[in-house]
Nucleic acid binder design. Structure first.
Length: 374
RNA sequence: GGGGAGAUGGCGGAGCAGUCAAACGCACCAGACUGUAAAUCUGGCGACUUCGGUCUGCGUAGGUGCGAAUCCUACUCUCCCCA
């Protein structure tokens, strides 16, 4: 058993648990920062750790292109390569089929794509992706899947589901075949199905039927309205076994995450705190700040007066605005650092509230304050 | 003293009779960003506006012409070269 449920409210759906991995335990709910190219952009592994992040995510597809298999093999895996000794999850490249659609073609057993770097052609099967992730030595592997845009036609969603299911089975078989080399690695199943409730149900049954160490809900936050995203998330989460970890892929904003926790989600990853941070947006207990904006010119308070992260303990909004204004790299770093710290803290505090049976009240208070910015 | 070049919106800099409220860049002001081809992208940037327009505008003052940032005259100011 890799996942243990520690607390589950009888009337509501939020849960607290612990996921055991080869590089340590992950307390859930948990937010996982995204470091696609084996770096949480602008931050060192030590800094990310200091933010309190328990686990990070990188991307197999991107690392396959650069630095490539050879270097990762010779560096003795990803943990060693990037000096991160905690748990690592690796995304397969399924999202890149979505985001780099023009460069991709789904063929029997895998995906053919044109490298966005040098234009070279590659064909990767579901098995290749698993094998590569075993070279990376990640603690959690994701199978190749297809993530559709919103809106997707029903027939596209059905076709895509068949592909994703086929890849899921092949991924699991490939992992089994790897034997001892992958024995310490977890493999999650991904539930797709776009916005079609019955397809989500069908996908959940099939994927759960194959049996994975955890279950991911994919294909959300791809352009659909917020309400719909939550509706699909809750509906899909309800279809998953209670004793397995549930991962909502690519979500989200602070409000999205608290909503999803209420829908029974345990794990999140999202680029928002880092990408938006690099673009000058800071997340605080009082809402979001666009630190590049003129009103911060003379604002000598920290980003968030309630935050004790490195950036908030030492620097002011006026200074950070100045750094953005002058395109100094430190600005990107300080806001990225704060945002990750804030995300991690928010979910940590949520976990505590869940265990103390007061999560809904906490969420209400947080939302009230967060939306009432000023 | 002689000869030459030029003055365009916050700055740099196109335009050289109509399609010019004036390219482009910078600066400035906003907005977006959800399993990262993102330190990126989008929009605004004379005034007023019932959002259709209206007015004021390309050093200053006149003039030509249906029409001028664009042509002519004078003036003011800058820069370069020669003494």
């Amino acid at each position: 058993m890799s996942f243990k449920l520690i607390y589950k409210n009888k009337n509501t759906k939020e849960r607290a648990g612990v996921l055991k991995t080869a590089h340590g335990d992950v307390l859930t709910p948990c937010f996982v920062p995204v470091g696609t190219l084996a770096t949480i952009k602008t931050l060192s592994s030590e800094e990310v750790k200091a933010c309190g992040a328990a686990m990070i995510m990188t991307n197999a597809y991107h690392l396959y292109l650069r630095p490539g298999r050879d270097i990762l093999e010779k560096s003795k895996g990803l943990h060693n390569f990037m000096s991160w000794d905690g748990p690592i999850m690796t995304d397969s490249g399924g999202y890149q089929i979505f985001s780099l659609a023009a460069l991709k073609k789904i063929k029997n057993g895998g995906v053919e794509f044109t490298s966005h770097i040098d234009g070279s052609k590659h064909f990767l099967t579901a098995e290749d992706i698993i094998e590569f992730q075993s070279i990376l030595g990640s603690d959690i592997m994701m199978p190749l899947d297809e993530c559709l845009h919103y809106p997707a036609s029903r027939s596209d969603a059905e076709d895509s589901l068949r592909t994703t299911f086929d890849w899921a089975k092949r991924s699991k078989a490939a992992k089994m075949k790897n034997g001892r080399q992958s024995a310490h690695q977890l493999l999650f199943g991904i539930i797709q199905g776009s916005t079609y409730r019955d397809l989500r149900k069908c996908a959940a049954e099939e994927i759960v039927g194959v049996g994975f160490d955890g279950y991911a809900i994919g294909g959300v936050a791809v352009g659909e309205p917020q309400d719909l995203m939550h509706e699909i998330t809750e509906h899909t989460a309800d279809l998953l076994p209670e004793d397995k970890i549930r991962y909502l892929m690519g979500v989200g904003t602070p409000l999205d995450m608290l909503g999803a926790i209420s829908e029974g989600i345990d794990l999140f990853d999202c680029v928002v705190p880092t990408r938006n941070g690099r673009n000058g947006q800071a997340f605080t207990w009082d809402g979001e700040l666009q630190l590049r904006n003129a009103p911060f010119k003379y604002d000598f308070r920290p980003i968030d007066e309630r935050c004790d992260c490195h950036a908030c303990s030492n620097y002011t909004r006026a200074y950070i605005r100045h750094l953005f204004n002058t395109e100094e790299i430190l600005g990107l770093r300080l806001v990225s650092l704060h945002n990750i710290y804030f995300y991690v803290k928010l979910i940590e505090i949520s976990r505590k509230a869940i265990i103390e049976n007061r999560f809904q009240k906490f969420r209400e208070e947080f939302e009230g304050r967060y939306n009432n910015r000023g």
